[in-house]
Amino acid sequence: MSTHENERHPDFGHVAPLKALFGTFGALLVLTVATYGATYIDLGPLNIWIALGIAVIKGSLVAMFFMHLWWDGKFNAFILICGLLFVMIFIGIAMLDSAQYQAELIPGYAPAIHP
């Protein structure tokens, strides 16, 4: 397609090839259907990890191609990963801790809702 384009390319920044954009788009559609389909298979606790796994793949595709990370300087990817890392530390510790102290909670406690 780019053969009949006589537009000037910019001096900086990367122009994403059309193949990459449409390829990503197709993959995202397929993966969306896959997530949807996966809910009809009962794998117990595995289900959520499958759903999350697919979401991570989809997210990575968006970040790499739509957001140009694949072609960019590595530093942008580095800060994205740092951000995700800190989110995971936060979620991980909060989950670990709350799971530990669940035993102390009064089950179903919510006096304002059901006194």
Partner: peptide
């Protein structure tokens, strides 16, 4: 907690 929430989570 009156609505079933977790006040310690707030502190996190």
């Amino acid at each position: 907690p009156a609505l079933g929430g977790d006040p310690v989570l707030y502190q996190h």
